[in-house]
Design a protein around this nucleic acid. Structure first.
Lengths: 241, 241
DNA sequence: GGAATAGTGTCTTTGAGACATTATAGT
DNA sequence: ACTATAATGTCTCAAAGACACTATTCC
């Protein structure tokens, strides 16, 4: 591997993850309490430096997902979010943070990773409130990740990534309501979701209940992009607290 | 600046630009013929390594915009696109390319920059066709940039970035038709564009002509996000060649 | 029977698309 | 007059939203 002829500066590259899931009808993000400097004790997004110079970015993201969230086995949705590289964002030098957005179904309680003293799911509103001081510029990264998820729920089948392999239409509605922070009419939602070609397909005449009439089960359909899109109520409408 | 305690690997960081504009009702991209290795003589996106370790990414993008496209004075729309870091994408070593999308109004003929023998505007179809072999993974970056522009035309006022400070509704329609590659009904477009609150605002009762009835002039409105969005004809419809 | 949730039907309003018509310039 | 483009109006159809009603489970 040859060095460049001109003196191009080299920087450190980190990978950070915004991992979202649904817990008790609320959108949550996985945060860790940092165990090393800088920002020891602060809450931060899971992440870390590349392992070696030739590690692929997506591989690194998957590795972090396994290390710090125990989500290596069932790989959830994972996509590039953005890059954060403001000089001075990390006291250790010039660091580029390549951020990824991951969506996971409910599943496991988090286990503490290598550099993390503690890992926990936090509700989004809490994590973005003034009460919580995230390390580095992770608050901005988190905000961008949530915004990305809100956007993609409209025109892609991303919502199914929050659910397991099969789900009811109510489950799906729960996702939309939690991520968007709105209430939706179940009957219109039911009709709408089924009218979008390829969004969801019936998964056997199976059932599931707890109280009330059993619901039909569905699986994610072949279509990743929704046409026509799911429409989000305009922000001028009321949002429930 | 302290080195990290663990042996975190350092990589080279480049900034690459997808600069789009409209020329003769066609979407064009600015490409340069590379003057240095690797890929001498190949067409490539404008870009280059960070100048020094502390240079901000957005600053570097603006610098490249000025150096290689003479677009420093009137800063057009500029936004982060994505990151490309596959190991092996650059023979000089591990290189992260941070890609930016820039939208510019018509204006100037390009001038050759430092490392560029030649700079020119190429129609998108040509640049993405099999005839042209772009350097590195720039074909992918370009495709992503065009896709981003097509998307953002739907729900943001990005189209106005293609126009000057004032423009007619026909000018705007030209932008949508060129970027989307479709024909739109002028009357429905006229009505639609004016019905979106804050998209465009009248810029004096001024006029402008060439043949036919003079058209009213408009300026970009305060609203960057369009509600309701401009709707793109579904790809199942015919596309004109 | 009642409670709770799933699923269907109907009406109204809004907006997209097709297309006719009028208005204002140059020649 | 004629041509060309701008701007407005009208109609139809499809989809979003509001909401009444029926269906199937558990108690």
């Amino acid at each position: 591997m040859a060095k460049p002829q001109s003196s191009a500066p080299a920087v450190l590259v980190a990978v950070d993850l915004v991992i979202l899931t649904l817990r008790e009808s609320q959108l949550h993000v996985l945060l860790i309490e940092r165990g090393i400097e800088p920002h020891v004790g602060r809450l931060a997004l899971p992440g870390g430096f590349l392992k070696h110079v030739e590690e692929d970015l997506l591989d690194a993201a998957h590795r972090k997902l396994a290390e710090e969230a125990s989500l290596g086995a069932n790989p959830p949705h994972l996509e590039h979010l953005s890059v954060y590289g403001t000089p001075g964002r990390d006291p250790r030098g010039r660091v580029l943070s390549v951020a990824y957005l991951a969506i996971a179904p409910r599943l496991p309680e988090p286990t503490a990773g290598k550099n993390a003293s503690r890992a926990c799911w936090l509700p989004i509103e809490g994590a973005l409130s003034d009460e919580v001081h995230l390390a580095f510029d992770h608050r901005q990264i988190l905000a961008d990740g949530v915004e990305r998820a809100r956007d993609k729920l409209e025109r892609t089948a991303l919502a199914t990534a929050f659910c397991g392999s099969t789900f009811t239409i109510s489950d799906l509605q729960e996702v939309y309501e939690a991520v968007w922070g709105v209430r939706l009419d179940p009957r219109n939602f039911y009709r709408k979701v089924q009218s979008v070609p390829g969004f969801i397909v019936p998964a056997g005449p199976t059932r599931k209940a707890e109280s009330g009439r059993p619901a039909r089960l569905f699986r994610p359909g072949p279509q990743m992009t929704l046409r026509p899109p799911m429409t989000r109520p305009s922000p001028t409408d009321k949002e429930p607290t």
